[in-house]
Design a protein around this nucleic acid. Structure first.
Length: 599
RNA sequence: GCCCCUGUAGUUCAAUGGAUAGAACUACGGUUUCCUAAACCGUCAAUCCGGGUUCGAUUCCCGGCGGGGGUACCA
């Protein structure tokens, strides 16, 4: 950065000096030199041709000569290829860059202050009638990573969750439990609470379908049968009772939801995610109704003859949107408005980010407009962090068809895989206790899962193949973790043999190209974190970590560190390795992925 | 119908408008007297089609074609 700034300002001076024209620093295109060419940084001179009135090669040559004279301590040499001016940066510059990074404990991170923007991130948002599945896993991992990334870019962050704990689907589970449950509890069955409730949700559907079939067999139309089946009627009655605060229904509802929450907590804990504040729709939907009512009074919305309330969005190029049903009950949108109201009351939010799947793009487009009309400051530029679906090889996940990948099963399977891998390993570390080995398997298994999901551009749909499971080689979490563990091992050994790295390095021998490439790669971390924050894009951090590790592995293979004869060189390489491990730990940490000290 | 997203090796993923489009998996072949071989190296292989913008397009714009999602009383 220091290097790039000095070059950029020198180029501005150079253009002024050579061609007598002032240019803005932004017009200087400084990029990393491609591998096939000699050099470290490249200036693209095409934009200057109109000023120089010379050929690309000559312009590049002029500028190169100038830079070499102007900042000789930075630009050691250069070469010009077509319109590209490739600069060779001095070893001394690289070493002082490495020193800067070493002295900066928070390298790559920008700390928040009291005045930093307050960003609220909503993610997870489960229903309480079934356990979490792979789609939720993607949501949770993205939400958690995004929260870390926003914090790393100097924002104050509040992580929040809105739990959909009310509605007909909950009543279905409750009803099935009453009818077929025989008083089963998580304790009596040993089944995790959310799974237990999920089982009754499935049971409801099974019996409901049977009833529909009986009715259609006796001549009823399918449409009618769906509405007339005794089970669905009972469920609806139960919902009405719930809305009317029927004590028995409410008590059962509370009991069953508590089972589910206990189950969710386990899954969240396993995934390593948490929340600062949890909202429940059973508490926010009434606020939503009130807000709509107020909007109606202010003339923002209108009422139709049947009593339903609507917002007219045709001026924004959208349709009309329902806010309250004709029977006065709330819809999804109403609840989101209510939740927004409560949140704004609780926190002075500057920005709101919703981590929700892309099937709800339209919903959030509308929500943004509605919140803005209702006077929420952050309504207009709320961010819908819209991620793609997770698909399976045979298509979408469908809970009805039993093609969901359950979150708990998946986590357990990944940890098992990791354990098997470490048992197969040739150089198995035998001095590890059972407990330590298990902990490593947990870190590695989860690392594989998290990295697999986070390395993909969030917007895109992604494919998950459970049969092949997840690879531990190539561009994977364990690959990065393994490299980290190896570096840590080297640093431990160095320390044991009494080698210590000085606070400030000064190496007199010239650095080789791979060493320079590694320093350069480390220095890019700052930009990557900024980019991730600007684009709301965790995947670029994942891919950066992989590139860094890949480059280090090649270095590791070609050069020795502890066995290096030149002592200066040895110390330098240890320092380099230490900074790399620091960046890996920070980068993976932003993604919510732990790195093991050994594996 | 209308709106939004998306299209890159056999597969899964990369590439602020820059140089000869990178990896990984799979297949085949190679590398351990050496700091952790969960590593490293090699071979084969791709920008859906047609226009436009410019010094230069996988990227931006327009038009097709393919895939996914949404589309008003589900959440």
């Amino acid at each position: 950065m220091e290097i790039e700034n000095r070059i950029t300002s020198a180029v501005v001076r150079g253009i002024q000096n050579l061609y007598g024209q002032e240019i803005a620093p932004e017009t200087v295109q400084l990029q990393k030199t491609k591998k096939e060419f000699t050099g470290h940084l490249t200036i693209v001179v095409f934009p200057f041709l109109k000023i120089s009135h010379k050929k690309p090669e000559e312009t590049a040559q002029d500028l190169g000569d100038f830079l070499k004279k102007e900042i000789p301590d930075v630009v050691a040499d250069f070469n010009a290829v077509k319109g590209f001016l490739n600069l060779i940066i001095s070893s001394q510059s690289w070493i002082s860059l490495l020193n800067d990074i070493h002295h900066n404990d928070k390298f790559g991170l920008t700390e928040a202050t009291d005045k930093s923007p307050l960003v609220m991130i909503e993610y997870s948002s489960p229903n309480t009638n079934k356990p979490l599945h792979l789609g939720h896993v993607r949501n949770n991992l993205l939400g958690w990573a995004l929260a870390n990334i926003m914090a790393a870019n100097g924002n104050r962050v509040v992580k929040t969750n809105i739990v959909n704990d009310r509605g007909i689907h909950i009543c279905k589970s409750m009803l099935a439990w009453l009818k077929y449950g025989n008083g089963a509890t998580p304790e009596s069955t040993g089944i995790k609470g959310d799974h237990l409730i999920g089982d009754y949700y499935v049971a409801f559907d099974k019996h409901y379908k049977e009833q529909i079939k009986e009715l259609t067999d006796s001549g009823m139309s399918e449409e009618e049968a769906k509405n007339e089946a005794p089970l669905i009627k009972e469920a609806r009655e139960m919902l009405v009772k719930w809305e009317n605060n029927d004590p028995e229904v409410r008590a059962l509802w509370r009991k069953m939801n508590d089972w589910v929450y206990a189950g969710f907590d386990e899954t969240y804990k396993a995934l390593g995610v948490s929340f600062d504040k949890i909202y429940y729709e059973s508490e926010t939907y009434i606020e939503g109704k009130k807000a709509v009512q107020e909007g109606l009074e202010k003339g923002l919305f209108y009422r139709k003859e049947d009593g339903s309330v609507w917002a007219d969005l045709t001026s924004e190029g959208l349709d009309e949107k329902l806010l309250l049903r004709s029977d006065g009950t709330s819809v999804y949108m109403t609840q989101d408005i209510g939740t927004a109201k409560l949140r704004f009351r609780d926190y002075p939010i500057n920005k709101m980010i919703y981590v929700v799947g892309n099937e709800q793009n339209y919903h959030f487009q509308v929500l943004s407009i509605l919140l803005d009309r209702l006077g929420f400051e952050w309504g207009k530029d709320l961010v819908h962090f819209s991620y793609g679906m997770v698909e399976l090889p045979n298509g979408k996940m469908k809970s009805r068809e039993g093609t969901v990948v359950d979150a708990d099963d998946l986590i357990a399977e990944m940890i098992n895989n990791a354990k098997r891998m470490s048992e197969d390993k040739i150089n198995k570390l035998t001095d590890l206790s059972e407990e330590e080995a298990n902990e490593i398997a947990r870190i590695v298994g989860l690392g594989a899962l998290k990295y697999f999901i986070l390395k993909v551009d969030a917007r895109k749909n992604m494919l998950f193949n459970p049969a092949e499971s997840i690879d531990f080689n190539g561009n994977t979490g364990p690959f990065i973790q393994y490299t980290y563990a190896r570096i840590r091992s080297i640093l431990r050994k160095a320390q044991e043999s009494g080698l210590c790295v000085p606070e400030t390095l000064s190496v007199h021998t010239a650095l080789n190209e791979k060493e320079i490439a590694l320093i350069q790669k480390i220095s890019e971390f700052t930009d990557v974190v900024k980019q991730a924050g600007n684009d709301y894009n965790p995947s670029c951090i994942a891919n950066y970590c992989y590139e860094l590790v890949k480059e280090y592995n090649q270095f590791y293979h070609d050069f020795s560190i502890l066995h290096e004869a030149d002592n200066d060189k040895k110390i330098f390489r240890l320092a380099l390795s230490a900074e790399i491990s620091k960046v890996i730990r920070t980068g993976m940490g932003l993604l919510g992925i732990e790195v093991p000290e050994r594996m």
